[in-house]
């Protein structure tokens, strides 16, 4: 029973982290029809911004929660101007876009490794700190940074939901996801919306990077190792759908935590996520909440 309750807590933490990363990935896909293989390495960049602030410059980690989203958002917007927009203008096809994303991912990952080295590093925080009342009341372990992940993710994603639902930018993004031609003929400023989509996607995944750095640790393939799991979240929920990504993140996180109890082998946790993703693709490629149009 305790094992199951603990698994619920772990799922909530993992799902919250996945969701922060997955929403950005799915928004970019929705607006640009681009499968961004560099998304994971953008998460790594966020984690290392946290490392620079917290360890190299000895400043409080709290600063990283602002700095990492800004830096990664700037990087993402930069790729739009330097890489993606020129490539779209050149009329690139799917394989070109996929390979460009792979090239960018490799470049970024090894640039990070070049600067910070290949070892695992830790933030100078006490990431063994747990929430006392959870331990006392339920005899369960909930790390301080786990709780922080859940809270930040919840607050930020509610903000994103409001942005999508209530603002002109959100409306433009949803319109572009739905039908590019219709959106453009209805006066949506495509270039501007795309830039802000990248900024939002980068900010979210940069934030996820700091949280991953705090709850896991920091190493150059941190984001790449999470990337396929994040794809799993996005695809299970329905690619292109922000709410789908949110839902998919918790579906994947809960499946991993609980099925791993069934398999009784912690090492298969990531594999479980991939297998679920493959099954969903075969049975229902549009995912739980996705529209058929997004996958055709």
């Amino acid at each position: 029973m305790d094992e199951l309750a603990q698994a619920v807590l772990n799922s909530l933490t993992a799902g919250s982290l996945y969701a922060l990363a997955a929403v950005g990935l799915t928004l970019v896909y929705g607006v640009l029809r681009l499968t961004n293989f560099a998304h994971g390495d953008m998460l790594t960049l966020g984690a290392y911004v946290g490392y620079a602030i917290n360890v190299q410059w000895n400043l409080p980690l709290a600063l990283a929660f602002v700095a990492a989203p800004v830096v990664v958002a700037a990087f993402a917007v930069g790729t739009e101007y330097v890489v993606w927009r020129p490539l779209r203008r050149a009329g690139a096809g799917l394989l070109q876009k996929l390979l460009m994303a792979i090239g960018l991912a490799l470049f970024l990952r090894y640039a990070i490794q070049f600067v910070w080295g290949g070892d695992r590093d830790f933030y100078e925080i006490d990431n063994t700190a747990t929430i006392a009342w959870v331990r006392d009341a339920f005899d369960l372990t909930l790390g301080f940074y786990d709780l922080l992940t859940i809270v930040i993710s919840l607050v930020v994603l509610v903000g994103v939901a409001l942005l999508l639902a209530r603002t002109l930018l959100g409306t433009s993004m949803r319109a572009l996801s739905d039908d590019v031609d219709l959106a453009e003929s209805s006066g949506v400023d495509t270039d501007r919306t795309v830039v802000w989509t990248w900024a939002l996607s980068g900010a979210l995944v940069g934030l996820a990077g700091v949280l991953a750095g705090a709850t896991i640790n920091v190493y150059p393939t941190l984001g790449w190792d999470l990337l396929l799991t994040i794809f799993a979240c996005v695809i299970v929920g329905g690619i292109g759908s922000a709410y789908g990504a949110l839902l998919g993140s918790y579906v994947i996180a809960f499946s991993q935590e609980f099925l791993v109890l069934v398999v009784d082998d912690q090492r298969y946790k990531t594999t479980i996520g991939f297998v679920i993703m493959v099954l969903v693709l075969l049975v229902r490629p549009q995912g739980i909440l996705g529209s058929k149009r997004a996958v055709n």
Binding site: T35, L94, L95, L98, L228, F231, A232, I235, D265, R267, Y268, T270, T271, F274, V275, M277, V278, L281, L282, P285, V295, N296
Partner: peptide
Amino acid sequence: LPTLRLRGDFLAITTLAFGEILRNVAVN
């Protein structure tokens, strides 16, 4: 058999995942 019917980028993700699953199996 199942994946060739998928669209290009899903095919890419699925085959990538297949490689990672095998590597996990080889580790475990």
